[in-house]
Amino acid sequence: MSTHDSAGGESLTGNTSASAPGDTGRPANPPSAKSPTGPEDVGPRADKRSERLVATCFGVSSLAAIAFLVVFWALPKTDVAYTPLLGVCLAVSLFGVGVGAILWAKKIMPDEEAVQERHPMYSTPEDAAKTAAVFAEGTEKTGVARRRLLRYSFLGAMGTLALPIVPIISDLGVHPRGNARQLKTSPWKKGDRLTTEEGAPVRIGDLEYGGILTVFPNGNTSPSNSLAPTVLIRLRAGENQPRPGRETWEVDGHVAYSAICTHAGCPAKLYEQQTHHMLCPCHQSTFLVTEHCRPIFGPAARPLPQLPLALDNEGFFVAGAAYQEPLGPSFWERS
């Protein structure tokens, strides 16, 4: 800024209209004469009153700051009023300074209205031409226009310098191609037991009619296995209307679906046991459990994938097969 303001262009407009260059720009009036507003504010008494008011603000601020310290140290931090009191003390302390400063400006400083000229927001044609000439002269001296070899080898060097960025960035994650395959792999294998969050396997009879349970493959509740969460639901006999070919995927009214919404990947498990709606709380996709969890409302485009169920010889629920399609939200490589 200083370069401009001290440049010649500014001098023809000046700064504040009435202050000559070199002047401090302050009106030379005693404070008492500067009271700006109505008659009741004029005079030394009003001025004194304003001064006391501003000083009171600053005083309140100091007191509040001390109160902050008192609360900070004297109150146990577990007290339910601890944080609110700290907030109030801090706020009062800050308001005191702020209100005081503004009142000072409004009541004690002169209410001036200053005018400042703008400098033109463009350079003179001569200036622009001069600059262009300097640039042209410099470019000419480099010879970049004539020396094609230099030009292209330089551009080539800049281009090849960008190459090292590629492996550096791609090493941020494990190799993407392998991971895309990982997205398509079912976290459940055939024969995996359905276990609760605490790792207990689930058997017939553990769920009442209208019951739902979040289950994991063989006790693997690790957060890294984020596509694995599945819900096991017990429908009443005859309620399920399986897709053709999936008649054997239910066991005695029990059905299992991926809990991960096919829209944006939230756990969609707000199950209404009478309407059999399964709602996702994030974007309100609604799936109909009795009809292979097909989407009936909201942004989801695909049904929740179904996990084929079976019983092992101890009577516990197991996956009858792996999931037959990729779980969770769609992605480019998904067919």
Binding site: L207, G210, G211, E272, Q273
Partner: peptide, 13 residues
């Protein structure tokens, strides 16, 4: 008891 649309969580759940 799972009132209305709330799922039921019985003693074996």
């Amino acid at each position: 008891t799972g009132p209305e649309n709330m799922p039921v969580f019985g003693p074996s759940t």
